[in-house]
Amino acid sequence: MAPSGGGSDSVGEIVAEAVRVVRESGLPHETTSMFTTIEAETWDEGMEVVKRAVAAVQARAPRVSLVLKADIRPGHTGQLSAKVERINQALEG
């Protein structure tokens, strides 16, 4: 999510509002320098968090750009860490 139109190149404080929404959701999540990833049991649960995060940014910026990527794999949970663990195991082997 990237706010724009606020008159400054620094958007960290505004983006933090979106991350706050994600953290308060209680869903498994990970924030990196460029993206925040969430894991939800259902599409609706995940999209509700995205919707609230966008609203939080819109409250402080006149324009919001959003990149959304979904990996829909019913019956699988804990993949935020499991995928990384599989890569690490492959690197060690």
Rank of each mutant, 00 (worst) to 15 (best):
V22D: 09
R86E: 10
P74V: 11
Q58F: 05
G78Y: 02
R52K: 14
V19R: 08
R52V: 10
V50Y: 00
E45D: 10
A53C: 12
E45L: 12
D44W: 04
R86T: 13
V19P: 04
A61V: 15
Q79L: 14
D9H: 13
N88S: 10
A61R: 08
G46F: 02
T32Y: 06
V49Q: 11
Q58R: 15
I87A: 13
M34V: 14
S25P: 06
A16L: 08
V15N: 01
G78D: 01
A70H: 02
D44C: 06
R63D: 03
G75D: 05
V15S: 00
E39P: 01
K69L: 02
T77N: 13
R60A: 14
A16Q: 07
I38Y: 00
D44S: 14
W43G: 03
R63W: 04
L80M: 15
V57K: 00
P28Q: 04
A59S: 11
T32C: 11
A61I: 10
V21N: 13
F35V: 12
A55E: 15
P62S: 12
V50I: 11
V15W: 00
A18L: 08
E13T: 13
L68N: 01
T31I: 15
L80C: 08
E85P: 00
I72A: 02
E17G: 09
Q58N: 10
R52M: 09
P62Y: 09
L66F: 07
A59V: 07
W43N: 07
A61S: 15
R23L: 05
R73H: 05
E41M: 07
E30M: 08
G78M: 03
P74I: 12
Q79T: 14
D44H: 08
R23G: 07
H76P: 03
V21C: 10
R60N: 06
L68A: 03
A55L: 09
K83R: 11
T31R: 15
V67P: 01
G46P: 05
V57E: 02
E17P: 04
V11L: 14
S81A: 15
M34K: 08
V19F: 05
A70E: 02
A16K: 06
D71I: 01
I87C: 08
V67S: 10
P74Q: 06
E24M: 06
M34Y: 14
A56L: 05
E85R: 10
E41I: 11
A61D: 05
T37F: 02
Q79D: 03
I38H: 01
R20F: 04
R52Y: 02
K83N: 08
L68K: 03
T37H: 03
P28R: 08
S65Y: 14
P74C: 11
K51Q: 09
E41L: 13
E85Q: 13
V21A: 10
I72C: 01
G75E: 01
R73L: 06
L68F: 03
A61W: 04
I72R: 09
T77C: 10
E41Y: 02
A16N: 07
E41F: 03
W43M: 12
G12R: 08
V50C: 05
G26F: 04
V49P: 04
R63Y: 03
V15Y: 00
E48T: 15
D71Y: 00
V49A: 10
T37I: 11
A40N: 07
S10K: 13
E30S: 07
L66V: 15
